[in-house]
Design a protein around this nucleic acid. Sequence first.
DNA 1: TTGTATGCGTTATCAG
DNA 2: CTGATAACGCATACAA
Lengths: 350, 350
Amino acid sequence: MKFEAITIKDIARALGLSTSTVSRALRDSYEISPETKKLVLEYAEKNNYHPNPIALSLKERRSRSIGVIVCEIANSYFSQVINGIESIAYNNGYNVIIAQSRESFDRELLNLQYLTSRSIDGLIISISTETKDFSYLKELHQKGMPIVFFDRIVSEIETHKVIADNYKGAYDATAHLIHCGYRRIATVSNPELVSITKERLAGYKAALRDNGIEVDDSLIKYCQHGGMIVTEVEEVVKELFELPQKPDAIFASADKLTTGCLRIIRTMGLKVPDDIGLIGFSNTDLTELLDPPLSVIKQPAFEMGEVAMNLLLQLIESKRPVTDFETKVLSTELLIRGSTKMKKEKEIAG
Amino acid sequence: MKFEAITIKDIARALGLSTSTVSRALRDSYEISPETKKLVLEYAEKNNYHPNPIALSLKERRSRSIGVIVCEIANSYFSQVINGIESIAYNNGYNVIIAQSRESFDRELLNLQYLTSRSIDGLIISISTETKDFSYLKELHQKGMPIVFFDRIVSEIETHKVIADNYKGAYDATAHLIHCGYRRIATVSNPELVSITKERLAGYKAALRDNGIEVDDSLIKYCQHGGMIVTEVEEVVKELFELPQKPDAIFASADKLTTGCLRIIRTMGLKVPDDIGLIGFSNTDLTELLDPPLSVIKQPAFEMGEVAMNLLLQLIESKRPVTDFETKVLSTELLIRGSTKMKKEKEIAG
DNA sequence: TTGTATGCGTTATCAG
DNA sequence: CTGATAACGCATACAA
């Protein structure tokens, strides 16, 4: 009853040949006679023989599958990246095994251990907001596991990295808010130590300074769990509104935080952009359907996935260790959709 | 240089034991002396030994990974289902390998062949809108591959199935539109033969009839690619608006179609719900942030994933073939959010 | 209590 | 041109 598939041995027995002959015939080896080849190939075809990938993996010491760890797939940015990864993997005969850290270090570590007990040939990872201890990753890297970081990278580990131009994205976003007439611009971020946070915060600050606005640290808020816990965005936004001098706009520095801010702003009965300006990183299509549509900074997620997977393939398939690591920086896109324009227009009109 | 991991053989050599002794010690066999066990365990721990999962797979003839095929992960419904699957899989030591059909039969088939050349222990699948030929799936099922269908199921194949209460969801949605005062209610659906389409269409029709409204076939539109091609939703919606008697509301019968309709309605410069009523199946959180928030029918996606994975585990782990197949029907949730209320209220007021 | 031998499916290395 | 054998890492029936 149980799913029994045909093996080389079966073919050999049926045809009165040896397993090695069959193996070679199937691989179209030059040392097999045309007749034998034909015989074997036809039999294999008829009984739809497929080599057992597990046996192959054991022999070749490679699994032809790669691991991907992200905080969650139900986030448009990450699912788009995975799309990109998958499309390249697929074309190269690789399986993609996806695991979610849910922004938890423990889960990330468990997944990592699980995936890497030699069942994957390479790893693409965006680390969780909670992760401060990179020793396991470092160890893995030292042991020779091909790793490509994307989005939230670990700068101390020397390998390929793929990021969006976070600095410029944040700069553009903040500049746009300023351009629209907002002056007290707050920002809601991921935890301080995460790579993207640093880059985006730097862009935010630079834009303020370049426009003669002083950076006010009380306007900079962090969400320790990247917005995974519903209440944490609520908390920081409320804190912002309890400030003696309230902000007139918010720059949300990640996908989940953008929708989080939007939600809490709504809950508070406020309107974007009249009551408060809002712009953020977001890869959800739906932001354009809001009324008025929300301006966002979009990451080239799909392309990032493609690039990451291509780099990983390079690492996997080069026999000698690669010494020349690349950090690909893909440009972000500022989508101006009217939601942040109005304040300025109003002021000009009034 | 290359990622060399420690094996049982290494331990055996280092400790002057045989591989079988080591193997048994590691598995805590009763026939090994406490001292030897301790010795082996400590050595294994120190050198952080991990059994090679590929060798195990070869031996046990199981890979401890399952395949999941959906049309696309970047769809909140599917990513939530995958979340559910993953959480159960994770707790049971299973890997999840995800593949996307992108609503293409060819890709689905390729993925299927790829996954099932004996490297997965089971399969969870929601078939693509294009798939009409189930012979490969049937064959697979007959060979003994454990399969669980969800969402878009294949009724002819006798195995576990997990669906939402599509009939009731569609009924509720349509009834709600009627309750709000709409009368000419169109529907935009997936292709006619897909299981969910049939169920949802039946619910839609029943709601109309129960409220004394005749079913008008010219108001029923199908999207052959489930909305994957941007223009197809546009086409059918435009067709609806070119009808001699235009619809006053639309029931969108799938996630992708709901956002698609919303988008094209916007493009046409129309407002929901004043110019046209809209309700649809959707699992995106963002619909509640629209202005006014959109009423939707939500599927218990996460739970569906959990249930599907649990059923699959049952199939995988029961030695004897299961004869008693279940079709779990989980209830949908109608989220009334005000966007469809207004017409009625206006009429009552006016 | 421990060791030896065998097999899971495949390919590589020898021999013939 | 083809066949026998060993090996990949592990578990287990069988021997000792």
